[in-house]
Amino acid sequence: MKIASIETIPLRIPFTTGGKSAGGVWGPKDLQVVDSLVVKVTTDDGTVGWGETFGFTAIPSVKLVIDKILAPELIDRDVTLREKSMLDLQKKFHIFGRSGAFIYGLSAIDIALWDIAGKSANKPIYQLLGGSEATSLAAYASLIRYADAELIRRNVRRAVESGYRYLKLHEVDVEVIRAAREAAGPDIEITLDVNAPWTVREAIDMTEKLREFNLRWIEEPVWPPENYSGLAAVRKQGGIPVAAGENASTVMDFQHLLEAGAVDFIQPSPAKMGGITELQKVFAMANAHNVPVMVHTFYDGPGLLASVHASAALGGAKALVEWRYFDLEAQLYGDAIIPRNGRIDVPQGPGLGIEPNPDVIRDYRIDL
């Protein structure tokens, strides 16, 4: 089979969050819509694969790169030469950057090609990756930043009452984090993603204030996020496990993170760092360093499904899956992937296992 066409489909879906959101790295204050970019790859025999790129406000640039640069290079290529094609394009376009739009675009295409491979073999992707006994994985509710103690209490209680035993906060104010812990109680595991705001000294000082909340990890505490020696210092001196990796873009980035001893948990984001092809390499590398992989999945389309398959096959039954706790007006997969009692099903159909709802694509597609 050869690649016949690559189509980029931007979606904009309204959501609520149990209250107004604070401004965050993903968008402005009171954000109430979320943009995503879905990629449809069709072969010359009509097989369709679906991918997704991370993007938010960067989606127009990723769409442009796929449409004008990556797609023309891939048309008529053999779909079975997936890894070769991805490497060829990384090499050809490396002068335009090893992060951002080019790698994001390749990530979406790679996921779609894995979807096609699974459909061609009539197997779910997790079986192509080695198989798994897990039929579901624990999910953690990844809450938006509220910067408001009462809102965080309300939404933490709502998540716990829905069955989540694991939560992720995106707060930076100690009193708001205290409110979340009080609302959750002592038995709920809480992680904290602060999105790289502090110097190393500031981060170490903050860990002293945060230690009482018994956090499972603190995520990206240091600016810039590629300051791996700084992360290692926080890990050594802070007394809280450190997680990072969602802003790492290549396998070499992950190698440097691990060699620096910077993390207790490593977090590749398959819609940002090369798709499933590169993700499986990070799992192998992390395993060699005895560091658990907690895949970053702040999205809910094919990128999320890719993460579930990889986590089930390569991370095992104890892997956790991030669930963006957004209350979307419409889900690309209906209710098929929504966690129940804090667990998300591992799809059993061929490829990614679930097909997007064409009505959702029709109703929420936007022009860029």
Rank of each mutant, 00 (worst) to 15 (best):
M1K: 12
S5F: 01
S5G: 06
T8H: 03
I9N: 00
I9T: 00
I13T: 09
G19N: 10
K20T: 12
K20Q: 08
S21P: 02
S21C: 08
G23N: 14
G27W: 01
K29G: 06
L31R: 15
Q32K: 15
S36I: 01
T43H: 02
D44V: 06
G49C: 09
P60I: 02
P60W: 02
S61K: 12
K63Q: 15
L64Y: 14
V65C: 14
L70P: 07
L70V: 01
P72H: 05
E73A: 12
L81N: 14
L81R: 12
L81A: 14
E83N: 09
L89W: 08
K92N: 00
H94E: 14
G97Q: 08
R98E: 08
G105I: 04
L106R: 05
S107M: 00
W114G: 01
W114M: 07
I116P: 02
I116Q: 07
A117Q: 13
S120R: 10
I125V: 14
L129W: 05
L129P: 06
E133N: 12
S136R: 13
A138E: 15
A141M: 10
S142G: 06
L151F: 05
L151C: 00
V156E: 05
R157S: 13
R158K: 14
E161C: 03
S162H: 06
Y166T: 03
Y166D: 12
L169I: 05
E171W: 08
D173T: 11
V174R: 04
E175D: 15
A183L: 07
P186M: 13
D187C: 10
T191I: 00
L192Y: 08
D193E: 09
N195L: 04
N195R: 12
V200L: 09
V200H: 09
E202T: 10
K209E: 14
N214H: 15
I218Q: 10
E220N: 06
P221E: 11
P221S: 13
V222R: 07
E226G: 02
G230Q: 05
A232Q: 08
A232H: 01
V234E: 05
K236P: 07
G238A: 07
G239Q: 11
A243W: 11
A243E: 06
E246V: 10
S249E: 02
T250Q: 00
A260W: 10
G261F: 06
K272L: 03
T277D: 02
V282P: 05
F283K: 11
M285T: 06
M285I: 09
A288W: 06
V291Y: 02
M294N: 03
V295N: 09
F298M: 08
Y299F: 11
D300Q: 15
G303A: 01
G303I: 07
G303P: 06
L305I: 00
A306T: 04
S307T: 02
V308S: 08
S311A: 15
G315K: 10
L320F: 00
Y325A: 00
A330F: 04
Q331V: 07
Y333S: 00
Y333E: 05
Y333V: 03
G334H: 00
G334C: 08
I337N: 01
I338P: 05
N341A: 10
I344G: 01
D345W: 04
Q348M: 11
G351V: 05
G353K: 01
I354G: 03
P356V: 08
P356L: 07
N357W: 02
P358N: 14
V360N: 13
I366L: 10
D367N: 10
